[in-house]
């Protein structure tokens, strides 16, 4: 195969895989913010729990950290989701009876604690060195077939999530959720258990974020404590959802694709900067993302694909 074509193909596959992983994260956040209006400022924490769980369960045994247990990768996914959900549950239980800002502060807190633990407990996850022997499914197929197979797997996961989220959106559960989001008092008055509904959305959303983390650990075959930094997870995913259109599952995926293209595209651009700026290019890109977030919030708060208004019964 032509080397240049091969390089381009691999680049396209990596772009598409990252799109799939971010798509999963955005669908998870849309469950929380789009459905239920819950502000999760600690996506990085739930992402990290999923990623580390996968790394510890699937990597080969090592004297440097807990495990690894050498599990088959697919078996690790449900456990990763379960653990993320288990951590989300008490946080939600405590905060969801109170209003939004408290949840935001508590999720910042929990992700900070998760970061501290992963950074400092070497026995658990090899501290700052991280785990670099995570197996990726379909690796044995070689390049590029294995990469394509993994990409297909990631996209399949995203599509399954999308279909499930769409069904949930239309279901009585989704309608009740939006009713609570838009008018808590009225929803409570017609007998909806506001805290329980919110808790369900929060826990399920966090589980999906854990799933995104698990896929990411597999894709990079590595997870280190730098992955718990909020920039590439918490911030980027929020920007994606807001730009794509919160409250719209397709918008969530579109946002993931658009913003990841911008993020990767600017990487190509900043690589052409003078040498002394290249080292700082990632800050320039972070700056761009921050500015983008503010502008979109001010001017296009509904995103590219806005939430669809409910269908009127009489039409």
């Amino acid at each position: 195969m032509d080397m240049q074509f091969f390089g381009l193909l691999m680049y396209a596959i990596s772009l598409a895989t990252m799109f799939g992983i971010y798509g999963v994260l955005c669908l998870g956040l849309n469950l929380q913010w789009g459905f239920a209006g819950l502000f999760n400022a600690g996506i990085a924490g739930f992402f990290a729990v999923g990623a580390y769980t996968t790394a510890i369960l699937t990597s080969p045994e090592s004297p440097n950290y807990l495990g690894g247990f050498g599990w088959p990768p697919l078996l690790a996914l449900p456990i990763a989701m379960l653990l993320s959900g288990l951590i989300a549950w008490p946080v939600g239980r405590i905060c969801l009876g109170l209003k939004g800002d408290y949840l935001a502060m508590a999720t910042i807190g929990i992700s900070e604690i998760i970061r501290l633990i992963l950074k400092n407990e070497d026995w658990l996850a090899n501290g700052t060195m991280g785990i670099s022997t995570v197996p990726r499914p379909f690796e044995s197929l070689g390049q590029p077939r294995g990469n394509i197979a993994f990409l297909a797997f990631v996209l399949l996961v995203m599509i399954i999530l999308y279909v499930a989220a769409e069904r949930a959106w239309m279901s009585p559960w989704g309608r009740a959720m939006r009713a609570i989001r838009d008018n808590e008092l009225a929803a409570a008055a017609i007998g909806k258990d506001v805290v329980r509904f919110r808790l369900e959305a929060f826990v399920i959303g966090s589980m999906v974020m854990g799933l995104g983390g698990a896929l990411s650990a597999m894709y990079f075959k590595f997870i280190g404590s730098s992955a718990t930094e909020p920039l590439l997870t918490t911030f980027l995913v929020w920007v994606m959802l807001i730009i794509g259109g919160s409250g719209n599952n397709r918008g969530a995926m579109l946002g993931a694709g658009l913003v990841w293209l911008i993020w990767s595209g600017t990487e190509l651009l900043t690589n052409r900067l003078p040498a002394e700026w290249i080292t700082r290019s990632s800050y320039l890109r972070a700056l761009l993302i921050g500015v983008l977030l503010i502008i979109v919030l001010q001017r296009f708060a509904n995103g590219v694909l806005p939430e669809k208004p409910p269908r009127r019964i009489d039409s």
């Binding site: 800002d101 935001a104 911030f235 807001i242 800050y283 993302i289 921050g290 503010i294 001010q298 708060a301």
Partner: peptide
């Protein structure tokens, strides 16, 4: 940044302050 949001729900402004956080930090790093 914040003035256009005076009549928006508080949580929207919190997200905007997320953006400010990103901008400030990257400017400092630059």
């Amino acid at each position: 940044v914040y003035q256009p949001f005076r009549r928006s729900p508080g949580i929207i402004v919190v997200i905007a302050s997320f953006g400010v956080m990103l901008v400030l930090r990257s400017l400092i790093q630059l």
